[in-house]
Every structure is written in C-alpha cells, then in structure tokens.
Amino acid sequence: MRFEELGPNVLMFVGDDYESVATAFLDGSDVLLVDSLASVADARWLHGVLCGQMGKTVRAIAATHFMSDHIAGMTLFPDALTIAHRHYRQTFLSQNQRVDELYREPQVVFDSTMKLRWGQHELHFLHNPGKTMDHVSVDVPTADLVCVGDNIVGNIVYLSKADPVLIRTAIGRIRQLGRSTIIGGHMGRFSAAVLDNAIHYLDRLREAVIRIRVGAPLHEVADRIASIAIETCVAPSVEPASFERQWHQNNLKVIVEQSVFALDAFASQAGNA
C-alpha cells in the first residue's frame, strides 16, 4: 500500500487488493474521496492515514463506477456523503465478483454532468460509459488531472462484459479533456500517453482476434485466441507490468467465453464478400 501527493491538496492512495486507487481532494481538514479502494483492510489503512495520522475528516465519497473493488471505504466512513451516477445499481448487480457487504446506497445521484467546488479545486463529474454504463470521469482542471476509473487498466483495457467500441469511445472523450495526468482505477497515475497506449492495445487485440476468427479452423479458434501474447498488442514503448499481463490473460478468457469481436469478424467477411 502506498500514497503520494499529486499536487496541492491532492493525494493518491493505492491499495494492495487489485492495486485499486483512491484520490483524495483536501479542503483544510475536510476530504472528498474519488473511489475508496477494494477491500476493508485497504480501506482501514486509508482511514488510518487520512483520519489517524493526518487528522482529516472524510466528508464525501464519489464513485467512478459502482463495483465492489472501488467502494470498500464507503462503509468505513458512515457520515460521508456518497455520490454516484444514476446507473450505479445496474453496475453493482452485473459485476463478476459482487461483495454485498461493501454496498452502501449513494445519497446523491446524477445523470450527465455535475460540478463540485472543493477547496481550491473544481471537480467536473462527466458521465462517460465504457467499461460500465455508470462510468464517470472526474475532470479536475485546477489540478490538470482526470480520474478515469476502469476505462483503462494501465496501458491496456479490460473488456469484461463491456462493448469494446464503448470503451474506445470513452477513452477518446478523456483524451479530449487534454489533462497531463491520468489517474486510473488501478495501478496509479500515468502521463497522458497512457490513453493512446490503451487504444493501441484495444485495436491490436481486436485485429488479432478477427484474423483468428476469420482464418482459423473453428476447432482451433479458442486455443489460438488464448495464445495471443500481450507483446503483440501493446504500444512499442510499453513494457507490460505484471498487473497488465494478468488482465490481458483475463481478456483472452473473456473473448473466448463471450465471443467478443465475433460480430466484427462477421462484418469484415461480409464486407469482403
């Protein structure tokens, strides 16, 4: 577990479980959290640092998306105002590894956009569906950063049950904000180049899967997809981290189990007919 200062009155915390990220915005002794880590143990550490060591009080917790690995702290700060997009419940119910004990009903829900002034910073909450339908990008122009949740996973993406086109579109919207620091839902902070890297990975993975689905015998498709190396998908400048390698393998399983890019393969064949 680690934390670092990203700028005046902005701290980033990275937990042990899933390397989940929480970003703290400070207004004197008051704190607004964007996401709150993945486990009770990590959330207790966050509580100990912010409240015990620093003497702060968490007044509000906003979720980039309502999955269990990002909302663990909500139950440990019972007096904090909870904020989420209005599709939060659909996301919570549809996740693969739901932890009902971490669920806490959000007290403020919004639809497309919301602005909130917190001390010296202004937070722009922008609905940006991609990995999930409730995904929110939290743009902070005053800190030149944006919290993007799981619309990227480091230099790659995680497909899960999402539409890859929706993920790509979401990343494109984040690029348009023009921020120099990108805070992912996992791993930590990145330069703006991470967005191009994630799109590169998604496009190369899609191309590789389409080639296999179109050209390989049906009985070989699953094994060939499972053997796609991450090195053939990441941008040339990227050395994949172990976390990215793990989630690339998860992507390959998802692609086989959910027939991801099968429609794209069909469309490519129809277009060549």
Rank of each mutant, 00 (worst) to 15 (best):
T181S: 11
T181N: 07
P217G: 14
R179C: 07
Q269N: 07
S237Q: 13
H219L: 10
H200A: 14
C233P: 02
L252K: 02
A265F: 09
I255E: 01
V238T: 05
G271W: 06
N197D: 14
H219T: 11
L195C: 09
G178Y: 14
D196C: 09
L202C: 03
H200V: 14
A193E: 11
W247V: 05
R189A: 15
F266C: 08
Q269H: 05
N250L: 09
Q249A: 12
E207L: 04
N250Y: 08
N250H: 07
P236Y: 09
V194W: 00
A193F: 08
N197H: 15
M187E: 05
I228D: 00
R189M: 15
A198P: 03
H219I: 06
V254Q: 12
T232M: 07
G271E: 08
A222G: 11
K253C: 10
E231N: 05
S191E: 14
V256E: 01
S227M: 13
A270R: 11
G185H: 01
L205A: 12
N197K: 05
E220F: 10
T181C: 12
I182E: 01
H248N: 13
V234A: 00
T232F: 07
S180Y: 02
A216D: 09
V214G: 03
R224A: 07
I199Y: 03
T181P: 01
H219C: 09
L218D: 13
T232L: 05
C233A: 11
V234I: 03
A198Q: 01
A198M: 06
N251F: 03
A216I: 06
G188T: 10
N197Y: 09
G184M: 03
D203F: 03
M187Y: 03
L252N: 02
N251G: 04
K253L: 12
G178D: 12
E244D: 06
R189H: 13
A241H: 09
A226S: 14
S191A: 13
E220Q: 15
G178F: 08
A208R: 08
H219V: 05
E231H: 08
A222P: 03
A226R: 12
A267L: 14
S191N: 10
A226K: 10
F266H: 12
H186R: 06
S227V: 11
Y201A: 02
H200L: 10
R206N: 03
V234S: 00
S180N: 04
Q258C: 05
I183M: 07
F190A: 05
R245N: 04
P240V: 08
D203C: 02
G215W: 07
T232S: 15
I230D: 00
A192L: 12
A208E: 07
Q249V: 07
A198E: 03
G215S: 10
H200W: 13
I225G: 00
I230A: 02
R245L: 06
A216M: 09
R213K: 14
D223I: 04
P217N: 10
C233Y: 02
C233V: 11
I228T: 04
I212Y: 00
N250M: 07
M187K: 02
I183R: 02
S259V: 08
C233H: 03
